Computed example of a mutant assay.
Amino acid sequence: MTSLLFQSISITLFLGMMFVISVSNAILMKKISRFEGILHGPLVSVLIPARNEEKNISRCVYSLLNQDYRNLELIVLDDSSSDATLQILESMTSEFSNLRVIKGEALPEGWLGKHWACHQLAREAKGEILLFTDADTVHASSTVSHAIGVMIGEKTDLLTAIVKERTDTLGELITIPFMIHSVFSIFPLAIAYGKRFKSLAVTSGQFMMFRKQSYLSIGGHEAVKDHGVDDISLGRLTKKAGMKWRLYDASDLVECKMYDGFKAAYFGFLKNYFSLFDYRIIPAAFVWSWMLTLDFFPLIVALLFIFGVAIPESAGILSLISLTLS
């Protein structure tokens, strides 16, 4: 019973810390849409790697070509798609003069696929600002103008953003929000925005806006060509170089359909999760076990307490508090 009480105290304290971090992040993670949009500014190159995206590519491209920001080029790389992605893109080029479609080159040794695609896109870009985004995103017409307003106003080298994750099935609803919750409640922006912890950075590949000179100065995607999570690694390199990285909220401007169904969401989550730990099993398993304990232990103890099972009253009360905090 003593160990049960100790466990309840530990979890309550940890969840209390998560609550404080969440409140702090809610204050610091500003919405991009609250910044004044800029309609005329430096050339922005919007860069999209696409592979077998026939279901999504039209909506994504149209949303980006209908931006209110005037000085924009869109480059889409078809990465050897086996579906109709390339044909759809080529049919759109006659409609939009600022759309370029390129075919991906063969993957060199030592590179991961998406990283190589992004490297080729950056090589083709003419803009002073590079916006990397995914083919399964849809952007409000003012997304780029607001983001440029942030980049210029806040003098940011890398602007990344949390977007709205669309979940259409129960399986997606179970898995995808957990990723966002983990970042929002565990990652302390108040500390990350400081200069002391150089590698403390979270970056979303769904929305990465770089100053091109800053991107090139850290080595671009070539510097992370074999890293499991390129976006996280690029964010860390930006901070280590002493440049300004910031995380914003673009959930009211950008929507993403990350995965299709529970199976895709589960395996996609596992891939990204383990790569955060450089594929080291022990630390990854420890953190995973602790997160499961946080989720289920207070619920189990609280239910035992409610149904009159003989446990310390303090443990039951702490578990109820933990559930409230979570």
Rank of each mutant, 00 (worst) to 15 (best):
R34W: 03
K55G: 00
F197Y: 14
G104C: 03
Y259I: 00
G316H: 08
D230C: 08
E124V: 03
L318Y: 13
W116D: 01
L304D: 01
T238G: 01
S142F: 07
I129W: 04
F207E: 03
E90V: 14
Q87T: 11
L77Y: 02
G37F: 08
S204T: 11
T175W: 13
T2H: 02
S141D: 12
E128G: 14
F207D: 00
G104R: 03
T293C: 12
L216R: 11
V44C: 09
T133E: 13
T12G: 06
A310V: 05
F305Q: 03
F14W: 07
I9K: 05
E36T: 15
Y273G: 13
G308D: 07
T167K: 08
S251V: 00
V202P: 11
G16K: 11
S80D: 05
N98K: 08
F296W: 10
A106G: 12
V144D: 06
N56I: 00
G235S: 04
I311G: 03
A84H: 13
I57E: 06
Y62W: 00
S251Q: 15
T85C: 05
L47D: 05
C256E: 10
T2I: 09
M291W: 10
I38C: 09
M208S: 01
L99W: 03
N52M: 08
S289I: 07
P312F: 05
L39W: 03
A223Y: 07
G308V: 10
R196A: 15
W111N: 10
M258H: 10
R70K: 15
G228A: 14
F35I: 11
E73M: 02
S214W: 05
L159Y: 10
P312G: 06
I174Y: 09
